[in-house]
Write a protein that binds this DNA or RNA. Sequence first.
DNA 1: AATAAAATTTAGACAAATCTAAAAATTTAA
DNA 2: TTAAATTTTTAGATTTGTCTAAATTTTATT
Lengths: 220, 220
Amino acid sequence: MNFTTSEENYIKCIYHLQQETGTVNTNSLAAEMHTRPASVTDMLKKLKAKKLLQYERYRGFKLNEAGKKVALEVVRKHRLWEYFLVEVLKFDWDKVHPIAEELEHISSDELVQRLDKFLGNPSFDPHGDPIPDRNGKIPVLNQLNLSEIPVKKTVTVSSVSNQTAQMLEMLKHYKIALGTQLQVNKKFAFDGSLEIKVLKQSPCIISEQVAKNVFVHYEL
Amino acid sequence: MNFTTSEENYIKCIYHLQQETGTVNTNSLAAEMHTRPASVTDMLKKLKAKKLLQYERYRGFKLNEAGKKVALEVVRKHRLWEYFLVEVLKFDWDKVHPIAEELEHISSDELVQRLDKFLGNPSFDPHGDPIPDRNGKIPVLNQLNLSEIPVKKTVTVSSVSNQTAQMLEMLKHYKIALGTQLQVNKKFAFDGSLEIKVLKQSPCIISEQVAKNVFVHYEL
DNA sequence: AATAAAATTTAGACAAATCTAAAAATTTAA
DNA sequence: TTAAATTTTTAGATTTGTCTAAATTTTATT
Ligand SMILES: [Mn+2]
Ligand SMILES: [Mn+2]
Ligand SMILES: [Mn+2]
Ligand SMILES: [Mn+2]
């Protein structure tokens, strides 16, 4: 089966939303897609006709197995292209999303296979998000939230959940990127802020809001 | 100004046709685009409204300077991506056209700049066609048709004008690719066929029809 | 349980890109 | 120089994806 760019964007968006909430509703999908609820309803009918999702009117919806498979293929392409843009073409990691949003719709399967191979079958994209393999299998990483780790423990930044330009700009300022090693010096109970020490940088303070969006891993 | 995929495909196609014939007519464009004359007329109105071409109804049409500029940008992207697919991802040269036909519509200017730089600012695509530079300037190569070169002169294959799958399959069989060095041993007046000797291969005979589509260059 | 509020869908419209069939203009040829 | 053939355009539909405004259904609140 073949899908339009618009269908693929909806499918991917539904996939991300249902990862968090199980079942998805019309308004939140409309908000996420920057479109109108009526447009969402129209598209839901098409995707249901193509047997990609469970959907009863007024009842919410979620992708079935066929839908998830399509979503994972698009996610795979998106993240492989992001990896390419950052690692090969040397883009900053906060500039690649909109370009990958276009590249993910290029249809050739062989292109994806060869790109994957050329890149060395990477497991994570430049934002630390896992790249599904050709079978849709997603690598798991035992990761913790930065706000929850013990002090004085050296950890490695593995992903960032808020990927807005504002957030990424802020992380760039702190010189925090994926793979950056750091430790928490002190936790302030008053507002949940943290003093952290990034390797080779002087200590600095980050808000709880930032910390909540940074995930790290460390050896046990 | 921003253009749709469909507009870009029409513009590119008009560009190629007017290179040969000066001014283009509705039916030949429809044939080349695998569409109907009525659809061409519809698109011509849009492109004229966007001031990309000279067009009076029933009178034929051609791109103006603005239109040529757009065409050259699309051609540049197409050929850069083909170069990428062959040289970086190791696709066979006869497989890349349909993929580049999609990739050429990715809109980011910075992507094109970085891709060009990463590839080493190549001047010719895998089919030997020149790649316009960022200003739309096209490199010229002093080339001759294979059917016209003197015997026993070593020449280098520089481009192939018929790029159908059938032609490329045939050239692959003969082990002729861009950059291949060869010489003509003998010319047969009867049917215009040639005995050629490809470097490191034993001599073989090619038809006049094939030779007419192969262009070569050599030092004077 | 009745009513108000919120969420969702339907109805109807529009733009882009395509098509077929018919009309109009141009070119060719008797 | 008319008539025939060819080319091109117009008229009117269709599909996809979107929208606004109105209607419907569900959920929350008195
Ligand atoms: Mn996208
Ligand atoms: Mn990403
Ligand atoms: Mn194209
Ligand atoms: Mn080419």
